[in-house]
Amino acid sequence: MRHARPAALDELEPLLAQIRALRGLTEKARGVFYRKSKAFLHFHEDPAGLFADVRLSADFDRFRVQTAEEQAALVGLLSRHLND
C-alpha cells in the first residue's frame, strides 16, 4: 500500500476540505495532518481503494474512504475524537 499520490488526493479533495475545517489539526503537507506535534492522519492508495490511517491511540488505525458514506463516517469519527 503506497502513500496517496496527487491524483488520489484530488479524488479526496472534498473530504480533505472537511478535515481542514476541523479544529485541532494542522496540514503539514497535502493530505498529511498533525495533532499538536504528532502525525495524526494520512492517506494511502491500494487496488482495494483509498484508505486513511488515523492515530486514535499509540498506533494508527486504517479506515477505507472510497465512498461518500465511508468518508462521512471518518469525519464523524474525527470530530468525536478531537472533541474528547
Rank of each mutant, 00 (worst) to 15 (best):
M1L: 11
H3C: 09
H3W: 14
A4D: 01
A4E: 02
A4Q: 05
R5C: 00
P6A: 06
P6W: 10
A7H: 15
A8E: 12
A8H: 15
A8P: 08
L9G: 02
L9H: 10
L9C: 06
D10C: 01
D10S: 08
E11F: 12
E11N: 08
L12A: 02
E13Q: 11
P14H: 06
P14F: 04
L15A: 02
L15P: 02
L16S: 03
L16W: 07
L16V: 02
A17V: 01
Q18S: 08
Q18I: 00
I19G: 01
I19C: 00
R20A: 02
R20Q: 07
A21F: 11
L22F: 09
R23D: 10
G24H: 10
G24R: 12
G24M: 07
G24D: 06
G24N: 08
L25I: 05
T26H: 10
E27V: 00
E27S: 03
K28I: 01
K28C: 00
K28F: 06
K28L: 07
A29V: 03
R30F: 03
R30V: 02
G31D: 08
G31T: 08
V32N: 15
V32M: 13
V32E: 13
R35Y: 11
K36D: 14
S37T: 15
S37H: 14
S37G: 08
S37P: 00
K38G: 05
A39I: 05
A39D: 11
H42Y: 14
H42A: 02
F43W: 15
F43A: 07
F43R: 13
F43Q: 09
H44S: 05
H44K: 15
E45M: 14
E45W: 14
P47I: 04
G49V: 04
G49I: 06
G49H: 10
L50C: 03
F51W: 13
F51H: 10
F51G: 01
F51N: 03
A52T: 10
A52F: 11
D53C: 08
V54R: 12
R55P: 06
R55A: 13
L56M: 11
L56D: 09
L56R: 09
S57D: 12
S57R: 13
A58Q: 14
A58E: 13
A58P: 00
D59V: 09
F60W: 02
R62W: 05
R62I: 07
R62T: 15
R62H: 12
F63A: 00
R64D: 06
R64Q: 14
V65F: 11
T67G: 04
T67A: 03
T67R: 08
A68D: 13
A68I: 01
A68E: 14
E69T: 09
E70P: 03
Q71W: 04
Q71F: 06
Q71I: 00
A72C: 05
A73M: 11
A73F: 11
L74T: 05
G76M: 07
G76H: 11
G76T: 13
G76Q: 13
L77G: 03
L77E: 04
L77I: 06
L78A: 03
S79T: 13
S79H: 15
S79G: 15
R80Q: 15
R80V: 12
R80T: 13
H81D: 09
L82I: 07
L82A: 07
D84P: 08
